[in-house]
Design a binder for these strands. Structure first.
Lengths: 151, 151
DNA sequence: CCAATTCATAGGTGCGAACCCATTATTGGT
DNA sequence: ACCAATAATGGGTTCGCACCTATGAATTGG
C-alpha cells in the first residue's frame, strides 16, 4: 500500500528530484541546529575556496539575489565568521573576507554534511558512490553551463 | 567568476539537491503550462498503476496530507480526469477512479516529463543514463524504506 | 562637472508546499 | 442504542525561498 507508482519510478528526473529533496531537507535540518541555513554555508565555501569577494561577485557566483546576500552576510558577520570592509579602490564596493572562526565553522558544517551524506548514500559501496558523483557532476556542469549562458 | 566552490561540488548531496531542484523546477514549469502541478500527475499515476483508491489510501501511498488530497482531487475531478464515488461498503470512504480522459492526460504529462528529462540528461549516453537510474532507484528505495518504517 | 550607472542596503511581496484543526457523516464495538 | 474512532472536507497558518523596488553613496563617461 506504500509502493510508489512505477510510472513515476521510471522517470529519472522524478528520482532525482525526490532524492535531491530529501538530501536537501536532511542537511537543512542539521544546519538549523547550528542556526545556519544552506546559503550561509555556500557563502563561506565560496570565500574559503576563492578568497575575498565583493558582494556583487558573491551574488553572481552563487546565483543569488544581491539583496539576499546582504542578509546572509549580516548574520555571518554577527557571528564573526566574515569581515566586511570598504574597498579603498572603489568605495561603493564592500569586500568580504572569511575569518579563522569562519573557516572553523565551515569545516564543522562540512563534516555535518558528510554525516548526512553517509546516511543518504548508505546503500552504495565506494565504487558506486564515486560513479554517482561523477555522473551528477557532469549533469551539474551542463546545467550550470546553460544557466550561465542565458545571461 | 561563475565557478561553483569546489568544497560544495565535492559533496554528492549538494549535487543531488542542486540537480534535483532544477529537474523539479523544469518539470513544474512545463506542467504549469497545462495548469497542472506535480501532485496531480502523481495522483493520476497512482490511480493508473494501482487502480482505484480510497482517498486516505492515496494520501498514505503518496505521503501527502489527506486534506491536500482533497484539493488536488477537486481540480482533477473538475477536469474530468478522475471520478469520485461513495464506497457502498463503507459510505465514509470515497473511492477515486481515473477516467479515460485522465489516462490520456497522464500519457501527455509523462511525455512532457520525458522531454524535460532529455534536456537534463543530455550529457549522458544510454549506458550512463541506465546506470544513473539504477543508482538513484536504490537510493530512493532505501530512503523510502526508512520513512515508511518511521510510522 | 553633470548625468547616468553601479553597489550595498532596507523593506516588502508573492508563491508553493507542508501542516494543523474543526466539522460532518458514517462506522464498528460494546 | 450509544460512544469512540475513522473519512472526507473546508478553512486557515506558517515557512522558506525567490524576487522586486526604492534609497543613498560613490564612481565613471561624455
Amino acid at each position: 500500500m506504500h509502493e510508489t507508482p512505477p510510472s513515476l519510478l521510471a522517470l529519472t528526473t522524478y528520482l532525482l528530484s525526490r532524492v535531491g529533496k530529501t538530501a536537501r531537507m536532511r542537511i537543512t535540518e542539521r544546519l538549523a541546529a547550528r542556526d545556519v541555513r544552506l546559503w550561509h554555508m555556500a557563502v563561506l565555501a565560496a570565500l574559503a575556496d576563492f578568497g575575498p569577494h565583493a558582494q556583487r561577485d558573491l551574488a553572481a557566483r552563487l546565483s543569488i539575489d544581491p539583496s539576499d546576500v546582504v542578509k546572509v552576510l549580516d548574520e555571518l558577520a554577527a557571528a564573526d565568521h566574515v569581515e566586511r570592509a570598504r574597498d579603498p579602490a572603489d568605495r561603493r564596493r564592500v569586500v568580504v573576507t572569511i575569518t579563522p572562526a569562519g573557516r572553523t565553522a565551515l569545516a564543522d558544517l562540512t563534516s555535518e554534511a558528510s554525516a548526512v551524506q553517509e546516511g543518504v548514500l548508505a546503500p552504495l559501496d565506494e565504487d558506486e558512490r564515486a560513479r554517482l558523483h561523477d555522473l551528477l557532476l557532469r549533469l551539474f556542469a551542463h546545467l550550470h553551463e546553460e544557466t550561465v549562458r542565458e545571461r
